[in-house]
């Protein structure tokens, strides 16, 4: 399916339209937010306390008297930055290794897959926390760590998808011609597992976003006073019954982004005819 017709198929389903709309809205917002937000994210109003929505502050103030709307608009930037690049890294190394394992078979495959299985057993949340606690939460550290841990699952998936292709004779034909492994991976297999990887990228992105927001909820994702949805929810949730807006606004923002990504993933899978084989590999 060409890029153009894929987009059309995506737009044909209502969930695809909504999902794509949400994702594009959030990405756009992340880019332009610093230009359009009405206040400084750290500026405290003279009230110095939580306040409901008003004409000046559409989403109210948080317990420190900061504008909630401003902080919500800005609160997804770090998360998007880290997860977008993290996903790219995860998919790139994971799919390459997976395709090589699937194509080479035999001992190469056995070694790669046993290592992958072992690494899957590592409780990565603890590792993430440990690494952040030791090296700090610079975006680069987060991108590399998340990119590494989330690529492990991609190896399995890419290998399974490659194995489905390798048995087909066009790969055997390329091998018999004497093509190099790299040529086979890039020219023969990649175009045929591209769809699977595309859907997987969307899924991985949403999972990574979940992990990032969980990290920042636990206080490890960003350093205050940088605004971030997870951290905003963590700080304001105790006062939720008194001041719901500082909790609800970031909740809506975060949920709408993740749901948007998942809707896109689902619509993509349907458009590419992959929705029934999804459950095969985690």
């Amino acid at each position: 399916m060409t890029r153009h017709s894929l987009l059309m198929a995506l737009l044909r389903s209502p969930s695809g339209r909504i999902g794509l709309g949400l994702v594009l809205f959030h990405c756009g917002l992340a880019l332009v937010a610093p230009l359009i937000v009405p206040y400084d994210f750290n500026a405290q109003s003279e009230v110095l306390d939580a306040m409901g929505p008003s004409l000046q502050h559409w989403a109210g103030l948080d317990t420190l008297g900061r504008d909630v709307l401003t902080r919500t608009f800005l609160g997804g930037r770090q998360a998007l930055l880290v997860t977008v690049f993290g996903t790219i890294i995860a998919i790139t190394w994971g799919s390459f290794l997976g395709m090589v394992a699937g194509l080479k078979g035999g001992r190469v495959d056995e070694w790669i897959m046993r290592t992958v299985d072992t690494f899957l057993a590592i409780p990565f949340m603890i590792f993430l926390l440990l690494i952040i606690a030791s090296f700090g939460n610079e975006p680069m550290v987060m991108i590399l760590t998340l990119g590494f841990f989330y690529g492990i699952g991609v190896v399995r998936l890419a290998r399974a998808a490659t194995l489905d292709e390798v048995v087909k004779d066009y790969v055997q034909s390329a091998r018999a011609r004497g093509e190099r492994t790299l040529t086979i991976v890039v020219k023969e297999i990649l175009p045929n597992v591209r769809d699977v990887l595309l859907v997987e990228s969307a899924m991985r992105w949403s999972w990574m976003l979940l992990a990032f927001s969980a990290l920042s909820f636990l206080g490890f994702g960003v350093t205050p006073p940088t605004p971030d949805w997870g951290l905003m929810i963590a700080n304001a949730r105790i006062y939720m019954s008194l001041a719901p807006w500082p909790v609800l606004a970031p909740m809506i923002a975060l949920s709408s982004l993740i749901i948007g990504i998942n809707l896109v993933a689902d619509a993509l899978a349907k458009a590419l005819g992959l929705d029934r084989t999804q459950a095969r590999v985690l």
């Binding site: 979940l210 927001s213 969980a214 939720m240 909740m251 975060l254 998942n262 689902d266």
Partner: peptide, 18 residues
């Protein structure tokens, strides 16, 4: 299902508490 598997646990948890 899509809704509940995508919303982070700390959001569902917080909402359930309130």
């Amino acid at each position: 299902a899509i809704f509940f598997m995508t919303i982070p646990e700390f959001i569902t948890g917080t909402l359930l508490i309130s």
